[in-house]
Design a protein around this nucleic acid. Sequence first.
DNA 1: GGATTCATGTAAGAGGTTACATGATTAT
DNA 2: ATAATCATGTAACCTCTTACATGAATCC
Lengths: 179, 179
Amino acid sequence: MKTNISTEFVLLGALLQRPKHGYEILQFLESALGSTWQVSTSQLYVLVKRLEREGLLESTMESQDNRPSKRVFSLTPAGRKTFLEWVHSPTEHVRELRVELLAKLFFFRHFAMKGGTELVDAQIKTLKEIRQGLLKKKDKEQDGFERLVFGIKAMTIDTWLQWLRQEAKPFMRKVHSNE
Amino acid sequence: MKTNISTEFVLLGALLQRPKHGYEILQFLESALGSTWQVSTSQLYVLVKRLEREGLLESTMESQDNRPSKRVFSLTPAGRKTFLEWVHSPTEHVRELRVELLAKLFFFRHFAMKGGTELVDAQIKTLKEIRQGLLKKKDKEQDGFERLVFGIKAMTIDTWLQWLRQEAKPFMRKVHSNE
DNA sequence: GGATTCATGTAAGAGGTTACATGATTAT
DNA sequence: ATAATCATGTAACCTCTTACATGAATCC
């Protein structure tokens, strides 16, 4: 499984609590994550088939009265492990934050899982390290355009750090208090 | 030409001042935009071929002593027009800013072109409009996670606005003073 | 009678990445 | 000798998007 394809992790997450069939996964993602995440109908069926081939999902056919049969997918132990590892890990690249980190925080809230605060802390630590490396490079840089690029990169990181401290962390504490 | 494929605009930009052959374009992008933009060798040759098919570039073969022949590409009037339209337009989506807008600013500086300040102003205006729409939606939103998403989106836009005013605009003024 | 919901997929095409293929010259 | 530079491309593979295909049931 390619680690940069986060849609697949989201699909695993959709099945964490109970098995679902394809159409049900679509509805779940549409209503719960629709503003952040969009998976097309056709892409979903391709992805679940791939995940099953990779051993992260398994499926059974269920026939229904008055309805077309449906294929119900459930997480295998490997699939569960893969999802849980993903959801607890901070993202390594700033460009992945908007998509990946938000999805992770969503799952922490949705499943009222423990570890959300730790994820936020780990992400803060990771970002601080990226910021350090960036500032070192910026100091050496002479070219005006390159310094401009460093400028927006550093500001972007600072914005995320501020958001993580001021908004994401309180949000995670609220999740915990619901348990 | 699909308007969301900005690599092609960058290739057009590389040829604005004088014709270049493929390898020369690669060197130009590597040295000038390497930190922001990467085009693989194979992809470059595919793209210039496509741009020629679309009528934005034209090419002639040049044979050399002691060297393999090279295909030299130059902008057609349509190619020049396409590039100039692109480089003067603000981006409509926040996610395109980091890649597209920075490339545009690079070209303004590199060619000491007029209109950079106007582009920055237009981008500020576009972002303010996006921000307005966002805040309206945030007010209506009840769900905690959705509000969190709106939070980072709004902060990201504010960061860009600040950067545009404090760093990009002074940078563009410096470019102008060189003319 | 027509739109929406339920339910699952295939096919074609666009775009990108990595690997492969070639071969001379020049610098160390 | 061998590594880097100059110079151009093809082929295979992966991913995503859009269009196509089917068909019953239920709501308006």
